[in-house]
């Protein structure tokens, strides 16, 4: 059996040198890189976004509980994100205040064939 020659593992070895290398993902993104994941930012107001979203859902006829469910569900990232940013208590308080002011608009919709 031939003797296997493997490089020793330890400080100052090739493996460590590789580990000390900068990870490719950490290298700066250059202009025009299609995978750069860049975006244009703009000033915005999450509080106003919250107020208007709740008003809109209230205009759709959603109740307090139905609206709160949207904030709890991580799949609805706009509402879930607002809850993460502002905190559950603040969101609940804002929703209560908005619904007290606006109420929930109720609209009865019926397809004519069904109603007839």
């Amino acid at each position: 059996m031939s003797e296997q020659t493997t490089e020793p593992v330890g400080p100052g070895t090739a493996e460590q040198a590789f580990q000390n290398e900068e990870h490719p993902a950490n290298r700066p993104v250059e202009a025009g890189d299609p995978m750069g994941m860049t975006a244009d930012s703009a000033p915005g107001d999450p509080e106003l976004m919250l107020t208007i979203l709740v008003e809109e859902f209230a205009m759709l006829g959603k109740s307090h509980d139905e609206i709160m469910q949207l904030f709890d569900d991580p799949f609805y990232s706009a509402t879930a994100g607002l809850k993460q940013l502002l905190g559950a208590d603040r969101v609940r308080a804002r929703v209560n205040a908005i619904l007290e002011r606006c109420g929930t608009l109720r609209v009865s919709v019926c397809a004519t064939e069904v109603c007839a």
């Binding site: 109740s63 307090h64 209560n96 205040a97 619904l99 007290e100 606006c102 109420g103 929930t104 608009l105 109720r106 609209v107 009865s108 919709v109 019926c110 397809a111 004519t112 064939e113 109603c115």
Partner: peptide
């Protein structure tokens, strides 16, 4: 042909806890 009717009704106000 008429296919749908949507009627706006009295808004509901929920009193907070």
């Amino acid at each position: 042909k008429e296919v749908v009717r949507a009627t706006t009704e009295q808004p509901a106000f929920e009193r907070s806890k």
